[in-house]
Design a protein around this nucleic acid. Structure first.
Lengths: 237, 237
DNA sequence: GCGGTGATGTTGACGCCGTCCACTTTAATC
DNA sequence: GATTAAAGTGGACGGCGTCAACATCACCGC
């Protein structure tokens, strides 16, 4: 590589400003724990002019969508990693639940950005990158449940989608709600989050072991159907 | 009253600007369905200068807290009203669940303001007015559950608080999560929200009928303990 | 009934923001 | 080596939240 690791004052072109801006956003988010940061501050952190980001993002919403997508990927990764220590499907699902809640509580601002609706504009729906990331996360749950986390194996056949979706709906909304109540301090203290996840998961499994509630036909879980997705994502490092 | 209903051009003093501003905020919220409105626009709507609101609210956050508190009161009222048509505790709880989800889905921007964390600043916690309103809403759930919504009467004695709180934690986080997933369009379509509420409630009751999961000691549900509350609220009309 | 006083509303200013525009620098291509 | 398009710069615009100084008015003690 010819990249001068010596004292370049600063090259005119940044090299990978897209990544740098998203990274700065993640930094600011976890430092300030406020969703209200400015594009200009990110530019300042990246050492470029306040207008440079516009060569990489159409507008602020576009940037936020990229950050949110990385958030989904991080969360999915934490969930995947958490399952690796466990063998039984039940324990794997519990580990995913703990990882999900922890991920949200450990970075509330990012979690809120992901689910806070800056991106849901009633007009066009969620940005494509974000939709893909959310889809991937849902796939993790589908696998865990079909593998037998509810006490019996449920193959991912078309005849079972309603049942699996019903279980996922309950699981996801339960964990999502718990995470946000913890984040909002309407339930606490946060140090008990693992125990709370376990309690709540236990209650859920009690119910699902009994019967998985039928969900109405035509209901979708995850990003709304019928819109194009995107394959490659931002999280590389 | 000496109030001139004739063509007053405009009196120098507004009369009840506090209420007018909060009302304008509620209007803008339900019209635009965006949480990002400006103080100045509210002032314009109320027909006053851009600085008049500062005589009634310390800053924007203070105004948002007042709006959020009204949101909690409205939601609590819708839940209360919904129970009136029903006799059985189970049906009353189900009606509250439907009303809760409906309330959120019918005005997502307001619901997000209430739970969106503009107000949870990690420093000092939630504003006092808002805390009181949330507390009142929780009381509705306590009553329904103690009245026997889970299949047996659970008196609100000190020995039962852990059990009741456990049930409320599951109920609230479940409905909260479902509402937000609907609002974010990560579950849909919205027209099925009543059926989805019922499905999810059914799954929850299946679980709680079995055993109510123990929640750890020291956990709180609702506004964090140990802080002063406020008695009078904004919702009069 | 009247003057003062504090609550309420206005005007103007400040710095920051997102975004647009015209311009400059640079790397890559024929 | 000239051309071209991508990437970064600098300045401008209107809108925002907030502050400070000033204007208006309702009420209270005399």
């Amino acid at each position: 590589m010819t990249k001068a690791t010596t004292t370049d004052p600063r090259p005119y072109h940044h090299g990978d400003l897209h990544r740098a801006i998203v990274g700065a956003a993640l930094d600011v988010l976890s430092e300030s724990q406020s969703t209200e940061f400015s594009l200009r501050e990110l530019a300042r952190r990246a050492g470029v002019s306040h207008n440079a980001p516009y060569k990489h993002f159409a507008d602020k919403r576009d940037l936020l969508a990229a950050v949110s997508a990385v958030g989904f990927e991080l969360l999915a990764k934490q969930m995947t990693d958490a399952t690796k220590e466990h063998d039984s499907p039940r324990e794997r699902l519990a580990a995913m639940a703990r990882a999900y809640v922890r991920g949200g509580v450990n970075n509330p601002a990012l979690y809120r950005l992901m689910f806070g609706g800056y991106l849901t504009g009633q007009d066009d729906g969620r940005p494509a990158i974000e939709r893909t990331a959310a889809e991937n996360m849902k796939a993790l749950l589908v696998n865990a449940i079909s593998d037998g986390a509810l006490g019996r194996v449920i193959p991912t056949a078309a005849s079972n989608t309603r049942e699996i979706d019903g279980a996922i709906l309950i699981f996801w909304s339960q964990m999502h709600g718990l995470t946000l109540l913890l984040v909002d301090r309407l339930v606490g203290p946060r140090e008990k989050m693992d125990e709370l996840s376990e309690s709540v998961l236990q209650g859920m499994l009690n119910g699902l072991a009994n019967t998985i509630p039928a969900i109405p036909a035509g209901v979708w879980i995850g990003p709304p159907p019928g819109e194009p997705n995107v394959t490659s994502l931002a999280l590389k490092g």
